[in-house]
Design a protein around this nucleic acid. Structure first.
Lengths: 188, 188
DNA sequence: CAAATAACATACAAATTGTATGATAAATAT
DNA sequence: ATATTTATCATACAATTTGTATGTTATTTG
């Protein structure tokens, strides 16, 4: 039984997270000062230092949270189905998740901090489905190493999602999923 | 006839570039101070400020140079051939280029500053081959918007290259090209 | 060789960070 | 409900890093 964290800490972190994203939408993360964040968040600067060593630690903590919430969305929704269905479901959840948190993700992407998402997606695919993919007939024929396949599809699909999110949204969510459906072959 | 730049400037910028990469291999770009760079480069800090406003401008300038050299490699080698051949040739040149400048690129990738390469590759493909791709039978059947296709393949292939570069190199250059060959369908 | 100018040495102001301390307010636990 | 704990605040200050300014020296160009 882990004692729950003090409400004040929860509140402080939340307002720091919100403010960070707000500022990242206005200017590049590189240019954001700790004092900017505190001023905007109405948080004393010494309080900031009580939680984080620097702004990078704040960003890391935030992204960790984001990963957890994405992971939860996936766990709740993705179940054992075949490879392509599985990937489609995974991306559908991912896109929903991104779409719900559109402000957050577009701020992250604007700052080119999306490496984590590629890494994360690769991680998820590797962890959750490596065993399944290994025993799956779909995958055997490709003659390609699994790690290469995973990198390729993860990189490509994330890039499509990023452009969909940051651009002027030529397509809606359903169209995007339709495109992705065509990009992923039935038999990999 | 544009007057050539003063030799001293060329030398100063070169040593700044070299030092930046050296430091980026040791620690994250975020943590590198202007004074670190100058100390290591044996350049007076005031000289730094004579050329750049901050370290981000230095990095931009360096990446601009890198883009130019990559562009030159491509121009020298890529000629009109069909879509798949064209893409394979493009990537072959890209991989050679990256391989030659392995130290530089792995430092950039380690710092997750590879967004520019995806953007750049997309740019190259869009500029140099959009017309060709448009009139190409290979592309028509896909029923997918060209921009989506470009994002997908650019993101996927760059991600494969990045992992190839930063990982412990399980595969050699020829094997990598073989994998890429299988990833790109004959008819897109 | 003369003129131009880049790099240097130095100093210093400004901005930002990082730390320390005691007081106050809020949350938890008994 | 009250005592206890502790997070936040206010403030001050040292330390770091940046950014600018100035005159001198060394190098490059023409």
């Amino acid at each position: 039984m882990n004692k729950k964290t003090d409400l004040r800490i929860v509140k402080t972190k939340k307002v720091l997270f919100d403010t960070l994203i707000k500022l990242m939408r206005q200017k590049n993360f590189d240019k954001i000062k700790i004092s900017d964040i505190c001023d905007e968040a109405l948080i004393n600067r010494s309080t900031f230092y009580a939680h984080y060593e620097d702004k990078y630690e704040l960003l890391d903590d935030f992204i960790e949270d984001l990963k957890m919430s994405l992971l939860k969305d996936l766990e709740d929704n993705v179940h054992n189905i075949n490879t392509k269905e599985y990937i489609m479901k995974l991306l559908s959840i991912l896109i929903d998740h991104i779409d719900e948190k559109r402000d957050i993700y577009s701020a992250i992407f604007l700052n080119n901090r999306n490496g984590f998402l590629v890494d994360f997606l690769i991680d998820v695919i590797e962890r959750e489905s490596l065993e399944r993919l290994k025993n799956n007939n779909d995958i055997v024929k490709s003659e390609l190493p699994l790690d290469i396949l995973v990198k390729f599809y993860a990189g490509g699909l994330i890039n499509v999602c990023v452009s969909w999110l940051t651009r002027k949204e030529k397509y809606n969510k359903e169209e995007l999923l339709g495109f992705i459906d065509k990009l992923i072959p039935e038999k990999i």
